[in-house]
Nucleic acid binder design. Structure first.
Lengths: 222, 222
DNA sequence: TAACGTTTAAAACAAATGTTTATCAACTCG
DNA sequence: CGAGTTGATAAACATTTGTTTTAAACGTTA
């Protein structure tokens, strides 16, 4: 079947180029020439470049949300009404993120795409992701709320985004950082290595003491 | 003097548009029309779009590095050979970051630009920043090293990037997050508010316990 | 004042972009 | 077999991009 082949070849090539150079910097001609398909094939199969971008995301996020929901189902059954500890929730999320792209051996691409989704202005993308995948995040947030009853509502919201920011940011900018790290230490780090390092940091961040009262008196430096 | 006026009007407009939409998505015509200057003025005054981008960064980073160096000088004099505590170092950095753009009332723009510098592929930018401003970061890293003698070399390197990631990521994507937060809590957050929340999180992250040994045996979820 | 370099203005440039069209091949199914 | 759908191909489309060019206006200096 030549059709499916063309479609997946476009997706495979597009996700790599998008991850490497961003959306605006990747032209359809870049994609089609590298994928060895006709230029018009993109508009024929996907309709537009925007739709292609969304399709690239969907291919990662659809299985991710499905598995994440399943993992949370299992967790809830396992804990049978008892509160699921924060560490377990974070661990589960990490494991799901690691699992999904393993099939296509492209965790790096997945993380980079997530980073782009956040940082890139592309309004349509943010809207698309929020609409299609907002529910999983809500569910996860709810569980985190139960796991951290002492945290004020707003504080938890922000901390969750802090740690998500850390993870996505470092893992999406991994290549650049890895270059620096190797130059400085000669040590090669794998993604799994990084996640191992991230875990205690993330947990400590979530469990940090509450900030001072919102008065704007800054403490003296010494 | 019409020249300087044109130059700064271009820079003022460019930095806002770049921050809002990214580099590739902002055309020179967008800039010049909004700045009410001639299209050719950009190439005349700056030479190219790349040079304009670098000039936009330089206008923030030059004063930042200058002040940051000065602040570190002061700190080293103050502590006279004794080790400067980590909290003080982080606090000093935060204060410098907050100070610099205050003049032009555009901290948001500054953070967003930093985020773009990280996430955007633009190779020339990363190279430019690393070449011109790498030394300040090295100096800061050294001080952090002295402040955290128990942390293994590589661990400190990564944690520093973790927390930098958190800060830049959240502050650069602030608008989007603020929208969600306001929708959920009706609460409006200022940048200073966010930094207040960030402080304990960052400190806890840096002081987190060391990760498990690099064996890849994942602990059971329960 | 006269001449010079500097800055603006408007137009034109070549190149690259996303998208559409028209034509042809391949396969399906009655 | 043959009508009809589906996909692939190449060409063309209209825009938009960064950059240059040409001309005029301005301001400084001799």
């Amino acid at each position: 079947m030549a059709q499916a082949d063309t479609v997946t070849r476009i997706l495979d090539t597009a996700e790599v180029l998008f991850a490497e150079r961003g959306f605006a910097e990747t032209s359809l001609r870049n994609i089609t020439s590298k994928a060895k398909v006709n230029l018009a094939a993109v508009n024929y199969h996907f309709g537009s470049k925007k739709a292609l971008i969304q399709a690239v995301f969907a291919r990662y996020l659809d299985p991710f949300t499905e598995r994440f929901h399943a993992a949370l189902d299992e967790l809830e059954a396992q804990y049978a009404g008892r509160v699921i500890p924060l560490e377990v929730l974070l661990e589960t999320m990490a494991k799901t993120v690691l699992d999904v792209p393993a099939e296509r051996n492209s965790l790096k691409v997945f993380m980079r795409l997530l980073g782009l989704a956040y940082s890139q202005a592309q309004g349509h993308l943010r809207r698309y992701i929020q609409e299609h995948y907002g529910s999983v995040f809500s569910r996860f947030s709810d569980l985190v709320r139960q796991a951290t009853p002492d945290l004020p509502e707003a504080e938890r919201f922000w901390r969750l985004h802090f740690v998500l920011g850390t993870v996505i940011f470092t893992l999406s900018g991994l290549d650049a950082l890895r270059d620096i790290a190797e130059k400085d230490y000669g040590e090669h780090v794998s993604v799994r290595d990084l996640i191992r390092r991230l875990r205690p940091v993330v947990v400590s961040a979530m469990n940090a003491p509450l900030p001072d009262a919102p008065s704007d008196s800054l403490p003296a430096a010494v």
